[in-house]
Amino acid sequence: MIELNHVSKMYGNVVGVNDLTLRLPMGAYGLIGPNGSGKTTLINLLIGHFRPTIGSLRVLDTSPSSDRQLLRRIGLCPASDVLYPNVSALEWVQYQIRLHGIPRRDCRRLAETALEIVDMTDAMRRPMGTYSLGMRQRTKIAQAIAHQPDLLILDEPYNGLDPVGRNDMTRMLRDWTQSGRGLIFASHVLQEIESVTPSFLLIHGGRLLASGTAAEIESILADTPQEVRLVGKDVAKLIHRLADVDWVESLQLNHVKHELKVSLREPIEFYRQISTWIRDDNLVIEQLRTPDGNLEAVFESLLRRHRGDVT
């Protein structure tokens, strides 16, 4: 589906993506990273909007920047909002389909079908200026799928959707992947992607830091240096346990807050033993705070490993 060979994209002296090499067979993949990580730059490379400064890439076995017919096989939902106040969703989606070279006689039928899939049938003839953000987001999804592409690329597709809309979107994307077509789903929220596909690409600072299934990513993160915090009146009593092991990099105790910061070289060893120590020593520990959910911290740990700062 996608093949990148040492792809880098520069904006003057700024690196958009840096030396990306990967090969993805047809399937569904989550592209996850914090804002500014390079997700949107990578998407623009995949659709041929950008050319690589260095390296080469192929999408659906062709070059995006030289084969404009490729766009007929790709459906794109960008992160940017769309608003043409005096144009209806039906008119706009029909126009987008027509741009792909599909005969005019088929455009209305395809547009109505796509808008029905995203539950916009009742409002599709109203001007988009009357739509909520969630309705505009549904309309963007409709134009991305209306021409029945082989590969769907979504950049933050859950923006503006309420819980019902998110549930509908998740169900639609699951159906899409089960049909055997391709999906690239960019987000900075891990749970959004995990609800659709178990396969992830983690990107930060323009670099691909890790890829694989959720279980494989968890295994990587469990073995990645990180900092944990323990809170409770007995945290100081853990120091004698942690001071004698070589997988602890540093300890920092705050007596006032009853908080112990532990920098770990091998977190998996810590997680294996901490509950036993707390039980055996009969300690009162109220909280154990890990980097889980803090993608910036996790990605920074992976980036340090990638640079060789840690082993």
Rank of each mutant, 00 (worst) to 15 (best):
I2G: 06
E3I: 10
L4F: 14
L4A: 15
V7N: 07
G12K: 02
N13I: 02
V14T: 14
G16T: 11
V17P: 02
L22K: 04
R23C: 06
M26S: 10
G27C: 06
P34C: 14
L42H: 11
N44Q: 15
G48L: 05
R51V: 06
P52A: 04
T53Q: 01
T53Y: 02
I54Y: 04
I54H: 08
G55S: 06
G55C: 06
R58H: 12
D61P: 03
D81M: 13
V82A: 15
V82K: 12
V87Y: 09
A89N: 08
W92D: 06
V93I: 05
Q94I: 01
Y95H: 06
Y95T: 03
Y95C: 00
R98A: 05
L99R: 02
G101M: 13
I102N: 12
R104G: 12
A114L: 07
I117L: 06
D119Y: 02
T121L: 08
M124F: 00
R125P: 00
R126N: 07
G129A: 08
T130N: 06
T130Y: 07
Y131D: 06
L133F: 12
M135R: 11
Q137P: 04
R138C: 03
K140R: 12
K140C: 09
K140W: 04
I141T: 10
A142T: 09
A146I: 07
H147E: 05
Q148V: 07
P149R: 06
D150K: 04
D155M: 02
P157H: 08
Y158M: 10
N159M: 04
P163M: 12
V164G: 10
N167E: 14
D168P: 02
R171Y: 00
Q178R: 14
Q178H: 11
L183E: 05
I184N: 00
I184Q: 01
A186G: 11
V189T: 12
Q191C: 09
I193A: 15
E194P: 00
S195T: 09
T197W: 04
S199M: 09
L201T: 13
H204R: 04
G206H: 07
R207E: 14
L208S: 13
L208Q: 11
L209M: 15
A215R: 13
E216F: 03
E216W: 05
E218D: 12
I220A: 14
L221C: 15
D223N: 15
Q226C: 15
V228F: 09
R229K: 13
G232P: 03
V235Y: 04
K237G: 00
I239D: 09
I239E: 14
W247S: 05
W247V: 06
V248K: 07
V248T: 13
S250M: 05
H255M: 09
H255N: 12
K257F: 02
H258N: 09
E259H: 00
F270I: 11
R279M: 08
N282C: 01
L283C: 01
V284L: 01
G293C: 00
N294K: 10
E296C: 01
L302M: 14
L302N: 05
H306W: 08
V310I: 03
